[in-house]
Design a protein around this nucleic acid. Sequence first.
DNA 1: ATCGGGACCTGCTTGC
DNA 2: TGCAAGCAGGTCCCGA
Length: 269
Amino acid sequence: MPELPEVETTRRGIEPPLLGRRIESIVVRDPRLRWPVTDSVQAACGHEVTAVRRRAKYIIIEVGDGGLLLHLGMSGSVRILTEDEPPRKHDHFDILTREATLRYCDPRRFGSFSWCPRPFEAHPLLNGLGPEPLSEAFSGDHLYRRSRGRRAAVKNFIMDGRIVVGVGNIYASEALFMAGIHPSRAAGRVSAARYAALARAIQDVLGRAVRQGGTTLRDFSGAGGTPGYFAQELLVYDREGRPCLQCGTSITRRVIGQRSSFYCTSCQR
DNA sequence: ATCGGGACCTGCTTGC
DNA sequence: TGCAAGCAGGTCCCGA
């Protein structure tokens, strides 16, 4: 469900109700996430939220001497409650302020929730991460330099968080199509010029999706998991057998690195 | 160092 | 209608 645009949309959605508010309590109903949720998250209680940031697909709810580190995994979502509501299946925990409650739901339990002391970058889950795709630190030149000598498929390469963060399965397919690069081409065999086009494509597609408020999480009432209206803008993803919008060739689906990949055999080389 | 594959989960859709 | 297989937007960890 959540790629970077959805995570950023979630961040923007929970920032107003949390920023400047004191965390009164954290109620863990079901600690079984990717890693068991421990009592260490209670360190945030009694503190005021000073910022709600995003790093890669993590959301960091900052308080005094640390932050709550949140990942939505494949199926995670949060909603903001302003009145009591009985928990549903897969509602794992609540973060309560006086005014509102953040409730986290994650059926597949690939998400995570943990306490992160400062400095955040030192946390094992955050250190070693590559640049943010929408930051100055990310460029075609960066991709080019990091890819020399690599034989892995370029699609896997750009989905590797140590190279660049936030490029998930959908947008990897989309960006490669926009740049005209075949997803299974060896990363080390893509020219600097084509990496420049790829970096632009990644920034363009992620930037547009963020500006549109993501897709499935536009509201926080727990929408259902299918692609929202951004799906209409997808050029190749989930379009197997349908005509390429550039040349009419039937779009191919193939598993690369255990993930479905969609591309045009004629436009992408 | 790099790579591919397996692992972790539930729920929905598809096909026999 | 029922049941099993296949599929899903992430990413960590392992052995080669």
